[in-house]
Nucleic acid binder design. Structure first.
Length: 762
DNA sequence: CTCTCCCT
C-alpha cells in the first residue's frame, strides 16, 4: 500500500499495489498462445479491464489491482479470434509479431542526394527488422485482391509509415498516388518527413505532404500524407479523386466529422469508378480503400465496407499497471493533488501526467501544488507543475519538453491535448480523472454545449498508454473499477454531436443532393440535418427544393464556415471585402488574446488600447492593425498579451482568403475606410440569426428562440448594455454564453434579412 | 466573471 503524506490537512487515497495480485493473462504475451485460446472478444476485454485481486483491509479498503500489458496484448489476444475467421494459421503468425518503431530523431539539415540514399539504405535494414515486415507480403496480397481492407494496429506501430511503402514497392502507385489522411497537421508533416527519409528522396518528390498553407507534394508524388480537411477540399475539384490509386484513412477510430464524411465519399467514389470501368472506360483505374484504426472496433468499419477483411498488427508498448480507487472520489481535483504527492513521495523517478478538463482547473491545480509543496519534508525533491493546453503561446508550451532538473519531478497538468495531439517525454505516471470537456449539440434547439463529461473506455486506455511509452508505467484512475465498467466503450462520433452546415454544404457541392440518404456510417439525427438544411436555406445557399443555389456554389468554394462565406459574398456588394476578410481571419482562431489567470488584470488593461465601443469585431480589427504597425514584434505581443502563433495564423488565413476572393472574381482590396458600421451590417448577412435584444431587466434575449443569453466575460461588451447585439457563437457551459459580440441598431435587422425581420421591424 | 480539441 502507499504510505500517506504526513500532512494533517490532506486525506489519503487508497489504491492497490500488491505484486502478487497482479495477474497477467498468459495468452496475452505471445501470439501463438493466444491463437489457441477459444474465447471470443470478451476475453480481450477481460484481460484488460477486469479486476483480478481483492483484498480486505479494515473492512472498507478494498484493494483492487490488475495489470494491463498495454493494448498490444489486447490486440494480440483478439487477433486470434478475429483473423481466425479469415486468415490461415500461418498468416496469423506472420501478422502477430510484435514490433518496435517508436519515432526516431529526424535529420534537420539538408542532406545531399548521395547521403540521402546512404541514409535510406541504413534505414532499410531497420525497416526490414521491424516485425511488421513479416506481414508485408500478406498485406500487399490482401490489398491487391480486395477493394477495401481494414487494418488494426497501435498508434506508432509503424503501420502508417510502412504500409504505404509496401504498396509503393508492390507497384500500387503506378496509376495514381497513394494517399494517407490524418486528422492532425503535425502528424501529416512528421510522417511525410520520416517516410521521405526512408524512401531516400527529398521531401516533396516521391513522398510529400499537403496541409493548409503548406503543400510539399507534387504531381509526381507517389505517397502523399495529408489532412482529412485537405482531401475534402480536393473533392470539390476532383470528384472521383482520380489522382489517387489508394486512399488510406488513418486514425479512423477517432471518428472525426471529416473522416466520417470521407468514409461515405470514398465508398461512393470507389463504386462510381468501378461502374465506369465496367462500362468500358479504359482511362479509369479502380480505387483501393484502406481503413486504419488503433482500437478494436474494426467490425463496424468492416461491415460498412462490404465486410472487408480485418488485419491485426500488434504493437509493442511497455506494460502499464492500472490502479483504480477503492472508493468513488467526490472531488477529482483534490484527489489528483493527493495522488500526485503520493507518487512523488513513494515512487521511482519519472514525470507525472494529470488529465484535467480545462484551463481554469489546470491553473487552480498549479497553485495548489505550489502551496502544498511547501509541506514536503526537506529530503524530498521539488515537484514542478507544468500546465499545458491549446490556448497557450508556443514558448509556454515548449516548457513541458524541458527535462526536470536533477532531483526534481515534473507534474504535467494537461487537457486532452495530451491524449493524442502532444506526446510528452519521460512520463511514467498517469493520473486519469476520468473526465473531459466535450462539445455537444442539441439539434432540437440548435444549441451547442461544452460540458464536463465522463470519458469513454477507449479514452481511458489512450490516457493509460501515455505512461508506457519509454518504460513500464503506472496509471492511477481516480474512479472505481465499477465506474470504469460503466463507461461507454467509445465516444459518440463527432458527426452525431455537432453542427452539420459545413459538411452538408460540402456534400451538396460535390453533387450529393439528397444528404438525408447519404451513406453515413453513423447517421446524424434527422432534426440535426433538417436544422442545418434550414439554416443553409436562410443563408440563401439552398433553394426551396434544397438544391444548391449560385450563392451556395460560391459559398462552398471558400474554406470557411457557411455564415462567414455568406459575409464574404455580401461584402462585395457593401464594399468592405478587405475588412470582412480580416475579421473572418481573426475569428478563425480560438482567440488572439491570451493570458494566464494570474495576469488577467494586466492583460485586460493592455487590451483597453484596442477596444472598440462597438464590440469585438472591431476590437479584433483594431488589434490586427496595431499588430501590423509594429510588424508583429514578439516583445510587443508579449507586453500586450497577444498570442503571436495565433496572430500569424490569422495572417495566413487572410492571405488565403484574398486568393480565394480573387479567384471568384471579387476585389479583396475593396474597403469601407473609416465607415466601419458597414462591416457590422455586412456580418448580419451571415449572422442575422445570431442576434439578441436587450430586455427591460437588463438581460439579452435571442431574437430566434427567445433564449436568455449572457455576454461572455472575455468580450469587450461584457457588462455593457446595448439595444441589440450580434454574436459569432453561442455555447452553453454554465450559462448560454455568447462570444464575439458586437452592438447593433435593431433597425439594421430588417435590412439584412427582410424575410425574417421585415414584418416585425418594418 | 470565463473559452476540450481539431480542420479547410
Amino acid at each position: 500500500m502507499f504510505s500517506s503524506i504526513q500532512s494533517a490537512k490532506r486525506k489519503v487515497i487508497t489504491f492497490g499495489d500488491d505484486g502478487e495480485q497482479v495477474s497477467r493473462p498468459t495468452n496475452s504475451s505471445t501470439a501463438t498462445e493466444s491463437s489457441s485460446s477459444s474465447s471470443s472478444s470478451s476475453s480481450a476485454k477481460k484481460h484488460n479491464d477486469t479486476q483480478n485481486g481483492t483484498t480486505k483491509h479494515n473492512g472498507s479498503n478494498i484493494v483492487q489491482d490488475k495489470t494491463s500489458s498495454s493494448s498490444s496484448s489486447t490486440t494480440a489476444s483478439s487477433t486470434s479470434e478475429e483473423t481466425g475467421q479469415r486468415l490461415s494459421k500461418k498468416q496469423k503468425r506472420q501478422l502477430q509479431h510484435q514490433q518496435d518503431s517508436r519515432p526516431k530523431k529526424l535529420i534537420n539539415k539538408e542532406p545531399t542526394t548521395e547521403a540521402m540514399t546512404q541514409k535510406a539504405k541504413e534505414l532499410k535494414k531497420h525497416r526490414n527488422s521491424l516485425p511488421i515486415y513479416t506481414a508485408r507480403d500478406i498485406i500487399i496480397k490482401e490489398v491487391k485482391e480486395n477493394a477495401c481492407v481494414v487494418i488494426v494496429g497501435e498508434t506508432g506501430s509503424g503501420k502508417t509509415t510502412q504500409i504505404p511503402q509496401y504498396l509503393l514497392e508492390a507497384g500500387l502507385a503506378a496509376h495514381g498516388t497513394i494517399s494517407v489522411t490524418q486528422p492532425r497537421r503535425v502528424a501529416a508533416i512528421n510522417l511525410a518527413r520520416r517516410v521521405a527519409e526512408e524512401v531516400g528522396t527529398p521531401l516533396g518528390q516521391k513522398v510529400g505532404y499537403s496541409i493548409r498553407f503548406d503543400d510539399t507534394s507534387s504531381k509526381d508524388s507517389l505517397i502523399k500524407y495529408m489532412t482529412d480537411g485537405i482531401m475534402l477540399r480536393e473533392l470539390l475539384s476532383d470528384r472521383l479523386l482520380l489522382r489517387y490509386s489508394v486512399i488510406i484513412l488513418d486514425e479512423a477510430h477517432e471518428r472525426t466529422l471529416r473522416t466520417d464524411i470521407l468514409f461515405g465519399m470514398v465508398k461512393g467514389i470507389q463504386k462510381q469508378r468501378q461502374d465506369l470501368i465496367d462500362r468500358g472506360r479504359k482511362d479509369i483505374q479502380p480505387l483501393k480503400i484502406i481503413i486504419m484504426s488503433a482500437t478494436l472496433d474494426a467490425e463496424k468499419f468492416s461491415e460498412y465496407f462490404y465486410g472487408a477483411k480485418i488485419m491485426y498488427i500488434s504493437g509493442r508498448q511497455f506494460p502499464v499497471k492500472i490502479l483504480n480507487t477503492v472508493e468513488p472520489q467526490s472531488d477529482y481535483v483534490d484527489s489528483a493533488l493527493v495522488t500526485a504527492f503520493q507518487i512523488h513521495q513513494d515512487e521511482a523517478p519519472g514525470d507525472i501526467l494529470i488529465f484535467l478538463t480545462g484551463q481554469e482547473e489546470i491553473e487552480n491545480m498549479e497553485k495548489l501544488i505550489e502551496e502544498y509543496a511547501t509541506d514536503l519534508p526537506p529530503t524530498v525533491g521539488k515537484l514542478i507543475p507544468c500546465p499545458i493546453f491549446a490556448a497557450q503561446d508556443t514558448s509556454t508550451q515548449q516548457k513541458i519538453f524541458e527535462p526536470a532538473p536533477h532531483g526534481t519531478r515534473k507534474v504535467i497538468l494537461a487537457t486532452n491535448i495530451a491524449e493524442t495531439s502532444i506526446t510528452i517525454p519521460n512520463i511514467r505516471y498517469v493520473i486519469d480523472t476520468g473526465c473531459h470537456k466535450s462539445r455537444g449539440y442539441n439539434a432540437k434547439i440548435g444549441i451547442e454545449s461544452l460540458l464536463v463529461e465522463p470519458i469513454s473506455k477507449s479514452s481511458a486506455r489512450q490516457r493509460m498508454g501515455r505512461a508506457g511509452r519509454e518504460a513500464p508505467g503506472l496509471c492511477f484512475r481516480l474512479y472505481t473499477e465499477d465506474s470504469f465498467d460503466q463507461l461507454e466503450e467509445d465516444a459518440i462520433p463527432e458527426i452525431k454531436r455537432c453542427n452539420l452546415e459545413s459538411a452538408i454544404l460540402s456534400l451538396k457541392a460535390t453533387g450529393i443532393d439528397d444528404v438525408t440518404r447519404f451513406d453515413f456510417m453513423d447517421r446524424p439525427s434527422k432534426s440535426g440535418l433538417l436544422r442545418s438544411l434550414e439554416h443553409l436555406y436562410a443563408l440563401e445557399a439552398l433553394d426551396d427544393e434544397g438544391k444548391l443555389t449560385d450563392i451556395g456554389t460560391k459559398m462552398a468554394a471558400f474554406p470557411v464556415d457557411p455564415p462567414y462565406a455568406k459575409v464574404l459574398l455580401q461584402s462585395e456588394k457593401m464594399e468592405c471585402t478587405k475588412e470582412a476578410i480580416e475579421i473572418i481571419s481573426l475569428l478563425s482562431v480560438d482567440t488572439i488574446f491570451s493570458a494566464p489567470s494570474s495576469k488577467r488584470e494586466e492583460a485586460n488593461e493592455a487590451r483597453q488600447k484596442f477596444t472598440s465601443l462597438d464590440g469585438d469585431h472591431l476590437t479584433l480589427l483594431n488589434t490586427l492593425r496595431a499588430y501590423e504597425s509594429v510588424k508583429g514584434d514578439r516583445d510587443w505581443c508579449r507586453e500586450n498579451f497577444i498570442n503571436s502563433r495565433h496572430m500569424r495564423h490569422v495572417l495566413d488565413v487572410r492571405k488565403q482568403l484574398i486568393q480565394f476572393a480573387e479567384r471568384s472574381g471579387m476585389d479583396p482590396k475593396k474597403t469601407c475606410g473609416h465607415d466601419l458600421e458597414i462591416v457590422l451590417k455586412c456580418f448580419l448577412a451571415g449572422f442575422f440569426q445570431n442576434t439578441a435584444l436587450l430586455q427591460p431587466d437588463g438581460t439579452y434575449k435571442s431574437i430566434l428562440g427567445g433564449l436568455t443569453v449572457s455576454v461572455h466575460p472575455s468580450s469587450s461588451l461584457f457588462g455593457k448594455k446595448r439595444e441589440a447585439i450580434m454574436y459569432d457563437e453561442l455555447v452553453f457551459t454554465t450559462k448560454h454564453f455568447v462570444r464575439g459580440v458586437s452592438a447593433l441598431e435593431s433597425n439594421w435587422l430588417s435590412q439584412a434579412a427582410p424575410k425574417y425581420f421585415g414584418q416585425r421591424h418594418a
